[in-house]
Nucleic acid binder design. Structure first.
Lengths: 183, 183
DNA sequence: CTGCATCCATACGGCAGCGTATGGAGAGAC
DNA sequence: GTCTCTCCATACGCTGCCGTATGGATGCAG
């Protein structure tokens, strides 16, 4: 056969889309097959079962969720402060499908220990990198740790917080807040 | 009949427990009935359908999720700074079933507009109260807004962030961070 | 005691999804 | 052309859940 109509990676991709849209419970084989325009017969040729797909989705996310961002930040030159600004700009701009997946996985990790372990690995790698950047700005280690937690919580928690900001837009307040953090 | 064996409120209570444990998809009538030791026949006497239960669960949460905390903080005397510390202490201590429900609803709100509206109302009431407290500490309105967003994101996002903190415990870093915010 | 309202048990039809079994169409090897 | 391997379609049984229908048990009013 010349080309595989629906390769393994397409199932993973569509699975991640469903995960971002409706959580892990929304990752169902038959709806996925309909979305891909095939039947589920092909799925069970590529994958053992539904659990195998879920784990492979997490593999894919774990592989691409950290490296790409860090590499993009490290690609250009500049001191720690300018790299922090680039990191924040990237984190703010990534408001697409990837962000939805990220948030869904965080909620998923609250009730699945295996997912929690993966999230811990990913978060620690990100936190380590951010700590190295803030460490170049601040003298006090406690201050570094506080700023890291604040920045991390801000970017994650901000998407779970649904409040207005006294006439300002969320983007404006976000910029004010990040200015405080990198001072 | 003397006493209702399984009153409406017990279904709501058990529904909230299921919501906190597994999200809205985990709120299912027949498992709930088994958990309550009855059959689902009683459920459909109390409620129209599953959707009615979900909305009543949200009603209950919306009613008790804000007032109780604010009343507890306002009950004692003290200036704005001490009230902020009490507020943070309450928010840190509420690590039980109620917190799970809170986090589950936040994820739920990402994909259900009606839930999002409720969450917005609740968050705005909390944010208004916190703004009044920070407003008594800080002169600059921008600073007030930034601190409000930081504090709110910290308490919510902290539960979705799974990273270590360079040898310190999460509680230690949290205290350091809150110290920074109320300075 | 009888009638009635409340609350629950049981049984039913229906639907959606999982995983399996089996067959079939297409492309390359020879 | 035939054989074989890859990938998908179709059909099936099974499970879990929804919502309904119906009857039973209990307590109270008269």
């Amino acid at each position: 056969m010349a080309t595989t109509q629906t390769p393994r990676a397409r199932w993973v991709e569509e699975g991640l889309r469903a995960l971002g849209g409706g959580g892990p419970e929304a990752v169902r084989i038959e709806p996925l097959a309909r979305a891909l325009g095939v039947s589920k017969g092909g799925f069970y040729w590529h994958f053992e079962d539904r659990q195998t797909l879920l784990e492979e989705m997490l593999d894919t996310w774990e592989r691409t969720g950290v490296d790409e961002v860090i590499e993009a930040v490290e690609a250009e030159d500049g001191d720690a402060r300018s790299r922090l600004k680039r990191l924040f700009a990237l984190a703010s701009a990534s408001g697409g499908e990837l962000l939805k997946v990220e948030l869904a996985i965080r909620d998923w990790a609250r009730r699945d220990k295996a997912v929690a372990r993966r999230l811990r690995r990913v978060d620690n790698r990100r936190m380590d990198y951010m700590r190295s950047l803030f460490g170049a700005i601040c003298e006090d280690d406690d201050d570094v740790e506080a700023r890291c937690l604040l920045a991390f919580s801000l970017f994650i928690g901000g998407h779970f917080v649904s409040a207005d900001h006294g006439g300002r837009s969320r983007a404006e307040v976000l910029e004010l807040t990040l200015e405080r953090l990198t001072r």
